[in-house]
Amino acid sequence: MLAVLPAFPAVAAEPLRLAPAGPWRIDYGEGTCSLARKFGSGPDAVELQIDQSGTGPFFNIILTGAPFGKTVGAEMRIAFGPDEAPSERSFLSSVRKEGMTPFIMMHGIHLAPATRPDPKSPPVVSEIGSEREKAIQTLSLSKGLRAPVTLEIGEMRSPLNAMRTCVVDLVKSLKLDEAGLAQITQGPRPKNVREFARFLQERFPQRELLNGDDGTVAVQLTIDDKGRVTTCQIAASDRPAVFDDAACFGFLRAAEFEPAIGTDGQPRYGFWGTRVTYRSN
């Protein structure tokens, strides 16, 4: 005898809205500035970290906590509400291993979607201004999560002003300001160009490859005095945004450099920039 059970529609996961569990913290790190804040409590507790290593409208974002352990698809819809429009972009997530705190990482995030002055021109990302920063109240993430998450981050003008001050101080302390850069006699030099190019090619985003999508990403890397890539900052990008994460992940994971050399003959911090073009054919 075969029993047929009635079908029930799948129940969508309830959206999660989390209030702050503490104030913003500013961290003057080695090679980068970070804003961090905790939200929620118990099993829903999460932390938001916003990193920046250079001037401009781009940020790197890391979100940690159990709510980010259940991702779906390859794109995340992210919006700084209530006024800024959402944008869709790729993300990197942790491999689910026992004892590992889930996290999501996104490179080249901006507070508002890129605009296109005319249909033939590339998208443009610009600063949104202090009044729009002050109007921000939430950060919402959906589509890429089984349960959408909204963080009540509050107005962002004050935290971002603190970030900008940190970036100015950081650039000066590492002698990466205009006066310091003038003292570099030899900039950072890549050591493993062929190996790195192969690394990027082997990790061409699969969906974009199948769709025939192309993209160009301009990156600025900070190279420390030992030749290590400490930060990857998106300097400019056209879309799809998936290429932002692919490029930065590749540089941070596989690129090797000889450090910059100063007028005293000693290795020192330096910038290295390039454009990475992804072509599907």
Rank of each mutant, 00 (worst) to 15 (best):
G212W: 02
M1W: 05
G212M: 10
V125A: 05
D83C: 11
L5D: 08
E84D: 15
E30W: 12
G144F: 01
P267I: 08
G265D: 09
A13G: 08
F199L: 13
E152Q: 14
G273W: 03
R279V: 10
E30Y: 11
C248W: 02
I223T: 13
T185F: 02
I109F: 12
P57V: 10
D177I: 07
E208D: 10
A21S: 12
C232Y: 00
D44V: 03
Q201F: 11
A7W: 15
A260D: 00
L221H: 03
G144E: 01
S34F: 01
Q233W: 02
L5M: 07
P240D: 10
P117S: 09
Q183E: 15
M163Y: 09
T115K: 14
L2A: 15
F257R: 06
V125P: 00
K172A: 11
T138I: 09
A74T: 13
Y278G: 00
V124M: 13
T274P: 00
K143T: 03
F91E: 11
F249M: 05
E155T: 13
K191Q: 14
F91Q: 07
A66Q: 07
V242I: 15
G215M: 01
V124P: 14
E133L: 09
N211G: 04
E155L: 06
P117I: 13
M106S: 12
I234C: 03
L151M: 09
K70R: 13
E155H: 07
L92T: 07
F251N: 01
T222L: 09
L48F: 03
T216E: 07
T138N: 05
F39S: 02
E75S: 05
A235H: 04
T150C: 08
R189V: 14
L170A: 01
K38T: 11
G144I: 03
R164I: 06
R146W: 06
G22A: 13
I62V: 12
E202C: 11
D83I: 10
T150V: 10
A162E: 12
A255L: 12
A112N: 00
E208L: 04
I62M: 02
N281G: 15
M156W: 04
R146E: 14
S121F: 06
T216Q: 04
G270D: 01
A241G: 14
T64H: 02
R89H: 02
E47H: 15
D225G: 02
P67Q: 15
G129Y: 02
K143E: 02
R275H: 12
